[in-house]
């Protein structure tokens, strides 16, 4: 509630200056945005038992950009996110209809191997959840089970590279053998990101990755997301509209299981077409 109400255009922005919400697409861009669609979804409905949680969602996720999914609690944004790597399969009584295609290939095709799908679409969760193993083993787990390394040196390279890209290498390089659960919350979350990128996914799903972190750790993760979008398609669910505005190029607003509106982040935050979006981003409800 607090988060939502604080997000009016007149409140101090991220840099402590009284200014309208800073929008990422307005920043300097390192790579030109290709608007090629990475994930195409149509008529996606999700049912938990008898209850319908998502209604005919149609959303196209562009390649190598950050797409933010926003909306009030229980609006279905996490449910939609979990459809994309078929994480809902694990949930008892959950049913998904409609089509979701990754690079034109239907991911709900019965012939598709769900394990390979999840290797292509990595995920970072709300609560940092490192395995109760060493930092090294946390990152090496994915490459190991997918047979991605020929030798120990290969694996070392993957672990090093992933931790480097997750911005964690300098902090943990001397204690790769200590347990991953011993790191601070922010470091754990970056470890989880390193673990996700270690299997070289094409897409990274992030389910409120900063909601359990303090502002400094959050800033680091946001910076990281901005760097990662050069190589990965990122979809992030967030409750913080400032965060959505800061890190994303595209934003989709969900409400009560419906996709209300989606488009350029700048457009969603400055001139929303739907009055529900308008109401949400100006903090009238949420």
């Amino acid at each position: 509630m607090n988060e939502a109400t604080s997000n009016t255009a007149t409140r101090p922005g991220h840099h402590g200056v009284a200014a309208p919400v800073t929008v990422a697409s307005g920043k300097e861009r390192r790579a030109p945005l290709s608007d090629a669609t990475k994930i195409h979804s149509k008529d996606v409905c999700v049912f938990y038992g008898q209850k319908q949680a998502l209604f005919n969602v149609a959303l196209d996720i562009p390649e190598r950009q950050v797409t933010a999914l926003i909306g009030p609690s229980g609006c279905g944004k996490s449910t939609y996110l979990r459809c994309l790597n078929r994480m809902n399969d694990v949930i008892e009584g959950c049913r998904v209809t409609g089509t979701i295609a990754l690079d034109g290939e239907n991911i709900y095709d019965t012939k598709l191997d769900v394990v390979m799908l999840r290797a292509r679409i990595g995920m970072v969760f709300q609560k940092p959840n490192p395995f109760p193993k060493s930092i090294y083993d946390n990152v090496a787990y994915g490459p190991r089970i997918h047979g991605m390394s020929e030798s120990k040196a290969d694996l070392d390279d993957i672990v090093h590279g992933s931790l480097e890209r997750a911005g964690l290498w300098n902090e943990v390089k001397d204690r790769l053998d200590s347990p991953g659960t011993g790191l601070s919350g922010g470091q754990q979350q970056r470890l989880c990101i390193a673990r996700a990128i270690a299997v070289s996914p094409e897409v990274i799903l992030m389910d409120e990755p900063c909601s359990a972190l303090d502002p400094i750790a959050t800033a680091k993760i946001e910076e990281l997301i901005d760097e990662l979008r050069e190589n990965y398609t990122i979809i992030i669910v967030t409750h913080s509209m400032q965060q959505a505005a800061r890190v994303s190029q595209k934003t989709a607003f969900f409400h009560l299981g419906n996709l209300v509106e989606w488009g350029e982040t700048e457009q969603i935050f400055t001139s929303p077409r739907d009055e529900r979006t308008q109401g949400y981003i100006t903090g009238r409800f949420g």
Partner: peptide, 22 residues
């Protein structure tokens, strides 16, 4: 904890791997 299972599924572990490794 379910979070450990999710983490393992998230990096593409099969059901058997999730059970045996975690």
């Amino acid at each position: 904890p379910p979070s450990i299972r999710e983490a393992a599924y998230g990096v593409g572990a099969s059901q058997l791997q999730v059970v045996l490794h975690h």
